[in-house]
């Protein structure tokens, strides 16, 4: 599997200039307080990983990978591990940036706010990727873009309707419980989701005909 992870990282590295420029830009925006960088940066992992899917598809890498020992399985597994690693690394970087920003502005450091915000983006980024990958494996990245758009749209509408229909005042105990244990519950849910998504992708990829 490490060979496949190396491959994804090598592809991301091939874009290092653009990545670097974006990071500097966001860091600058963050430092000058024009924008909340903690929100944007982890989402860059989505862009980076999608670009690796694009490159793969362009040269029919997945078909070639199927001829390598354990190629289908390791290809999928590597994508998930690489995703997790990248989101994790970017989050660490973002935390460091946030701390530096707070320090240079000599404001008191609000650890809860920084970790809460970055944790939330970390979770939502993983969530988005968990939803996207099985679709990509199913339809290929080109068609998946449309499918992803449709799914996000449907989820947004359904979510909006749900929020309107449900009166949350009845669930105060539940929400209180949730907010109390959020630090444990949300990561747990997200990890489960990631694992489920991995299993589905694996099933699709091992049966795929190229």
């Amino acid at each position: 599997m490490w060979g496949f992870i190396k491959k994804d990282f090598a592809m991301i590295k091939s874009n290092w200039l653009i990545v670097l420029i974006l990071f500097i830009l966001y860091a600058y925006l963050g430092l000058t307080d024009k924008m909340e960088i903690s929100f944007i940066l982890p989402f860059m992992s989505v862009v980076l990983m999608l670009s690796t899917f694009n490159y793969d598809e362009f040269n029919k890498w997945d078909a070639y990978a199927a001829t390598l020992p354990n190629g289908r399985k390791n290809g999928v597994r590597a994508k998930y591990v690489a995703t997790f690693l990248i989101v994790f690394l970017i989050s660490l970087f973002t935390i460091a940036m946030a701390l530096i920003i707070a320090y240079t502005k000599s404001t008191t450091i609000d650890y809860v706010n920084i970790f809460g915000l970055i944790g939330a983006t970390f979770i939502s980024t993983i969530l988005v990727q968990s939803l996207m990958y099985p679709i990509i494996y199913m339809f290929g990245i080109t068609k998946a873009r449309i499918a992803i758009f449709v799914i996000v749209f449907v989820i947004a509408i359904a979510g909006g309707m749900l929020l309107k229909l449900i009166d949350f005042s009845h669930f105060t105990k539940v929400t209180a419980f949730l907010s109390h244990y959020a630090l444990i519950i949300f990561p747990l849910i997200v990890l489960l989701l990631l694992y489920g998504s991995y299993k589905i992708s694996l099933k699709i990829a091992t049966k795929k005909n190229f």
Binding site: K7, M11, N15, T52, K60, Y64, T67, P69
Partner: peptide, 29 residues
Amino acid sequence: KENIGVVLDDMFFPEVLKAQDINQIMKSI
């Protein structure tokens, strides 16, 4: 698959990679 080598029409490593990347990747595969 450990014991076969393939050349396929139009299917290969993504073209943003270099020969040295292929070496590093295949070393682990």
